[in-house]
């Protein structure tokens, strides 16, 4: 096909022969129906994955799976669920404190060059491979401190991993507060601190929360920062300086055992199923919160 939109050919091109016209639109039609097929290529595996994990997990999935400890080859996921949420709680506490504060200051106070560098650093931090952070946690918090494998080390490492996700959304949330709101507040005599806590914060909160939930969904699914910091334990977490098990660790530790009824592998699939449910649930929450935020700011911009 030769240049069609090229300026050189001019309007004469529009009066091309009927055959040529048909050919051009045939190509367009092929693309119209062909390109969406790529979506099928990608979504088919997604549904296949969800289907197979449900098939492998559900026959043996009972309430006891959630409430009993792992015993011998089988048992339940209680210790891992408690461990995962303890780690996630620690990590979210750390990451939310650092991320929200940093995001707020980047958007509101930092001079533009500082803000630019901070944003670049935030994006780079988000790009650090999880296993590199795992090594960092292992070296700095397990070996150097002589703590050994601890829940605290796992929580901090996971927290460092989660910081950039919260930071980015908090930064955006504050930056996206309509400037009329700031101008109105300042014009009425509010101090910058008052503006931040009473005007910007309530407006930005839903977006910040959706960032926190998103970071939690990502953190819940991570293995590499935890395996060599939180260690492993088949009983529920006993303290901050004790090792703990976690859901993703259950999958990694048990996935290659032979598949028999009530086995380690069944436990791994149950953990995978539970993770899928939790992660998809958190994503739904993120969508709902983000939608609420959009509605709230839309009214202001109108």
């Amino acid at each position: 096909m030769t240049a069609v939109v090229g300026a050189a050919e001019g309007p004469g091109d529009l009066q091309g022969s009927a055959a040529r016209w048909r050919r051009r639109y045939a190509v367009d039609r092929i693309m119209r129906w062909g390109l969406p097929l790529a979506l099928l290529v990608v979504l088919a595996p997604l549904f296949d994955m969800i289907y197979w994990i449900a098939v492998r997990a559900l026959p043996t999935f009972t309430l006891a799976t959630l409430t009993t400890d792992q015993v011998g080859l089988g048992g339940g996921l209680y210790a891992m669920i408690v461990g995962s949420f303890t780690l996630l709680g620690l990590a979210t506490g750390f990451a939310a404190a650092v991320g929200i504060a940093a995001g707020m200051y980047t958007a509101e106070y930092a001079p533009p060059p500082v803000a630019r560098w901070a944003r670049v650093a935030g994006n780079l931090l988000a790009g650090i491979p999880a296993i590199v952070l795992g090594y960092f946690g292992y070296y700095a918090l397990v070996l150097y401190t002589h703590w050994g494998y601890t829940t605290l080390a796992g929580g901090i490492t996971l927290g460092v991993f989660m910081v950039p996700f919260i930071y980015r959304t908090a930064d955006l949330a504050f930056a996206n507060v309509p400037s009329e709101q700031r101008e109105a507040a300042l014009a009425m005599g509010a101090r910058p601190g008052q503006y931040l806590t009473r005007v910007a914060w309530p407006i930005a909160l839903p977006a910040i929360l959706s960032g926190v939930f998103l970071a939690m969904a990502i953190g819940l699914g991570e293995t590499a920062p935890l395996l060599y910091t939180a260690g492993w334990s088949s009983t529920p977490v006993a303290g901050l300086f004790q090792p703990t098990s976690f859901l993703t660790g259950a999958i990694w530790n048990f996935y290659d055992y032979p598949a028999t009824e009530g086995s380690f592998q069944a436990l791994a699939f149950q953990a995978a199923f539970l993770l899928l449910v939790l992660v998809i649930g958190l994503n739904v929450v993120v969508q709902a919160v983000a939608e609420r935020y959009r509605r709230r700011t839309r009214g202001m911009r109108a």
Binding site: Y109, L124, V163
Partner: peptide, 27 residues
């Protein structure tokens, strides 16, 4: 208040940069 906020803000805004630096330094 404004200048205090700015002054305090810069290191806080740099938290991601700081964390990145710590990770690289530890490695």
């Amino acid at each position: 208040e404004r200048s205090l906020g700015r002054w305090l803000g810069s290191p806080l805004a740099l938290a991601p940069l700081l964390l990145l630096g710590i990770v690289v330094a530890v490695l």
